[in-house]
């Protein structure tokens, strides 16, 4: 573990960026990326949970008995997910509506539990926070990018602003389920072409 804190952060943005390099968290990546706004909103909600759970797990790593660590992780993660759920209902209701059941489902997002188990439980606080933040920001960027592609082609808009003239016929396939799978598949292919991990 000779990595510096900044390296822990940066790895989440490129070498381990989910869902491209770490093929985890596919469901939200497919479901909520109909638009950039939803993609980024989901990414930020996940980042918050990831950051808080990594921080708390790392803080408590000497107190939690290893035998029941998974149960403790689940309680910690579920608590923060509920916090996000309530906050989004109170302050960004339209986004909460758009993301629907995928907010409570952050709890079963393998990325969050995976980071708690593989990283935060074994590392001190600062690297854990950097790790959580890095992976979270990476996830947010990835969802934003996927959302941009789908929104641009599927609705002809970007962040709600029309990008093409009125003659543009939206490519409705892209906002439906098949488009989600195909565009994520193509983006993965693109990432593979760009470089090895």
């Amino acid at each position: 573990m000779a990595k510096t804190i900044s390296q822990e952060f940066i790895k989440g943005l490129w070498t381990e960026i989910p869902p491209f390099r770490l093929v985890l968290g596919l469901c939200p990546a497919l479901a909520v990326t109909k638009s950039v706004e939803n993609g980024i909103g989901m990414g930020l909600a996940t980042t918050f949970v990831l950051l808080c759970s990594n921080l708390l797990v790392s803080l408590l790593r000497n107190i939690i008995p290893p035998k029941i660590r998974i149960a403790c992780f689940i309680i910690i993660i579920a608590t923060f997910v509920t916090v996000v759920e309530l906050m989004m209902q109170a302050y960004t209701y339209p986004l909460y509506q758009a993301l629907g059941i995928f907010i409570p489902l952050i709890v079963v997002n393998c990325i969050v539990l995976g980071r708690a188990e593989a990283f935060a439980f074994k590392n001190p606080i600062f690297p854990s926070v950097a790790d959580g933040l890095g992976i979270g920001v990476g996830f947010t960027l990835a969802l934003g990018a996927l959302g941009a592609v789908r929104e641009l082609l599927g609705s002809g808009t970007l962040l709600g602003h029309a990008m093409f003239g009125p003659g543009f016929q939206p490519f409705a396939f892209m906002v439906e389920a098949p488009g989600a799978f195909v565009s994520l598949g193509l983006m993965l292919c693109f990432m593979n072409m760009l470089g090895k991990r």
């Binding site: 107190i63 939690i64 008995p65 029941i68 149960a71 403790c72 309680i75 910690i76 579920a78 608590t79 509920t82 916090v83 309530l86 906050m87 209902q89 109170a90 302050y91 209701y93």
Partner: peptide, 27 residues
């Protein structure tokens, strides 16, 4: 550990729930 963790989580959530309830209904 499990008991303390669960009760802390329950308490925290109940507090947040109470303070956001009215706002959520309005939204």
């Amino acid at each position: 550990v499990l008991t303390v963790l669960s009760s802390l989580s329950g308490g925290l959530l109940a507090a947040i729930k109470n303070s956001t309830e009215d706002r959520i209904e309005g939204q």
